[in-house]
Amino acid sequence: PATVETLQDKSWEQKAAAKADDLLESFMGIRDLDLSQTLIDLAKEKKNIDEFACAVDEVLGDFEFPDEFLYDVWGVLTDSRPGSQ
């Protein structure tokens, strides 16, 4: 079904993706907003970090991201969500 997303909805996601990109740069030495956005897209649909880790394993398993990295990305998402502060 079609959903309506406001500009504000998108803006927090973009900020989260930019922060995830910093984490990616620190872990991989590579900046890639498509990859960071993919991580954020996976995280935003999940209820907890375990579900997020499983989704990353399914979609981006070849990267073998360490747990610490996934915790950090999850933290970025939860901090960036509207109303989290």
Binding site: I30, L35, D62, F63, E64
Partner: peptide, 9 residues
């Protein structure tokens, strides 16, 4: 792994 993902993407 990154380049393979990039190509697929």
């Amino acid at each position: 792994v990154y380049h393979a993902w990039k190509m697929r993407n």
